Amino acid sequence: MKKLRKLPDAEFEIMKVVWANQPPITTSIIMEQLGKAKEWRAQTIITLLSRLVERDFIRTEKNGKERTYFPLVGKEEYLKFETGDFIQRFHENSFTSLVATLYDGDKLKDKDLDELMKWVKEKRE
């Protein structure tokens, strides 16, 4: 498998549908769950799926007239990659900087900090 790279927003939307469903998934399922809401045509979804195959995020099999798709990268694995990349690029690998930014921007409440402290204590034990 290739090294993970950041997905464009449209491909990430496709992957969220792939991860939310039991494999294999079909173009029809993706169209039903995402295409109508995004007003994407079937060809757009097929193009995005092809890109995800090229990037080794999914694999495909042909079953009769229909293609099925299987995830090669798990949701947790990708989110871990994205979060690590974000913290590195914007916070110079400082978790404290990230938390301070969220707290100062009123995105993180005292209750969230309490939960975070509890989590840290549990991890250290």
Rank of each mutant, 00 (worst) to 15 (best):
A42P: 00
E76K: 11
R59V: 05
K75Q: 14
E54G: 04
K36T: 14
R59Q: 05
L52G: 04
L34R: 03
G64A: 08
G64H: 10
E39M: 11
E76D: 11
L49N: 06
R55S: 09
Q43G: 01
I58D: 01
R59N: 02
I45W: 05
R59G: 02
L52W: 11
A42C: 03
E39F: 09
G74C: 03
E61D: 11
L48H: 09
T68I: 14
N63A: 09
T60Q: 08
R55E: 11
K36I: 12
T68C: 09
G35I: 00
R67F: 15
L34K: 02
E61H: 10
L48E: 12
T47G: 07
L49D: 08
I45V: 10
A37H: 14
E66K: 12
K75N: 13
Q33E: 15
K65Q: 10
R59M: 05
K75F: 12
R59W: 04
P71L: 01
S50M: 04
L72G: 00
I58F: 05
G35R: 01
F70I: 04
R41Y: 03
E76L: 14
E66T: 15
T44P: 01
K65P: 08
Q33L: 09
Q43M: 06
S50H: 04
F57G: 01
D56R: 08
K38W: 01
E54S: 10
L52V: 07
K62P: 13
I46N: 07
K65E: 10
T47L: 09
D56C: 13
L72F: 02
I45L: 07
E66L: 06
T47C: 05
V73Y: 06
N63D: 11
T47I: 02
K62L: 15
E54T: 15
K65D: 13
I46H: 04
D56K: 12
Q33H: 08
G74T: 13
T47H: 03
N63L: 10
N63C: 11
P71A: 01
Q33C: 05
